[in-house]
């Protein structure tokens, strides 16, 4: 019962958040560079439900715009990471032998490094931009997908139904497209969904550190970073509103993805990898 209420809450949150991010440019477009010095540091009120920051900008409004960027980056980066992970895991699982061993050691090595550090290294080499952030996330988050795809393929490859397909005359390509991929793709889709919250957090962390998106753009990480200064003057809302938004939305995505995982594979229920 509590489980279902939580799930419903997650669904509603996501619908509301995605609806807001999609509709806000139509209903209430934001001028990214506008400053309103007459309304600096206002606390939350009916006119500004999230208050205003130290440049008089509406915090809730900018947070919704920030969420747009974060979710977009999260989805694209998660897709990029899954593609890379799928290819590497696919090669390791299908070719086996030396290819598998080399790729797996590479993954172990990369996994041993803190991925935020690696991500920072990648963005630091590039100009701050949406592309750089996506690349930074994509290149650091593919490891788990690669492992999932590889282990799935290794266990599928030895199943008798693959033997039966080969004995029945199926070509390599047919075994791959008809018998292996259809079993692996749902797992990749699930891994991608579970990765979106991670990617959003990663983007926010990079922006918070000043390495993500250009500072004048409303992104959640930028806003939390800017809000730190206001925190000292007592305007807590400038950081808290974007912070809460990111926590609520990523938890909602994670809750739904976890639920989906449980349906797809009840054995995985015991593990929690939020």
């Amino acid at each position: 019962m509590a489980d279902r209420t939580l799930l419903r809450a997650a669904q509603l949150t996501l619908v509301a958040a995605l609806g807001a991010t999609l509709l806000v440019p139509v209903i209430w477009p934001l001028d990214q560079s506008a400053v309103d010095l007459a309304h600096v540091g206002l606390s939350p009120s009916p006119g500004h439900p999230g208050g205003t920051d130290d440049l008089g900008r509406d915090v809730l409004h900018r947070s919704i715009y920030g969420l747009r960027v974060s979710v977009l980056v999260g989805i694209v980066a998660a897709l990029a990471a899954s593609l890379l992970g799928g290819i590497v895991g696919g090669l390791a699982g299908l070719l086996g032998g030396w290819t598998d061993r080399v790729l797996m050691r590479l993954i172990d090595t990369l996994a041993a490094l803190p991925h935020l550090l690696l991500g920072i290294f990648i963005v630091a080499m590039l100009r701050p931009s949406l592309g750089a952030v996506i690349l930074s996330i994509g290149l650091t988050h593919w490891l788990s997908t690669a492992r999932i795809v590889r282990s799935e393929l290794l266990s599928l490859r030895t199943r008798p139904f693959i033997d039966a397909a080969i004995a029945g005359g199926a070509s390599r390509r047919r075994v791959l497209t008809r018998h292996l991929l259809p079993h692996v793709l749902p797992k990749i889709a699930l891994a991608t969904t579970l990765m979106i919250p991670h990617a959003v957090w990663h983007e926010t962390s990079l922006s918070f550190l000043g390495l993500g998106l250009p500072p004048h753009l409303a992104s959640l990480g930028n806003m939390i970073n800017d809000g730190q200064r206001s925190l000292l003057t007592g305007s807590w809302w400038a950081s808290i509103v974007p912070g809460l938004l990111i926590i609520v939305v990523t938890l909602a995505i994670a809750a739904l993805a976890t639920r989906w995982r449980d349906r797809l594979d009840p054995r995985a229920r015991a593990e929690l990898d939020l």
């Binding site: 199943r159 008798p160 139904f161 033997d163 039966a164 397909a165 080969i166 004995a167 029945g168 005359g169 199926a170 070509s171 390599r172 018998h179 259809p182 079993h183």
Partner: peptide, 26 residues
């Protein structure tokens, strides 16, 4: 396996012990 041409592979039929394991569940 795949190194044997399909015309030769398909000359030999195979029936497994566990039909469950030998059939693609989809």
């Amino acid at each position: 396996r795949h190194r044997v041409p399909p015309q030769i592979r398909t000359r030999i039929g195979l029936l497994f012990q566990s039909p469950r394991a030998a059939s693609d569940p989809r």
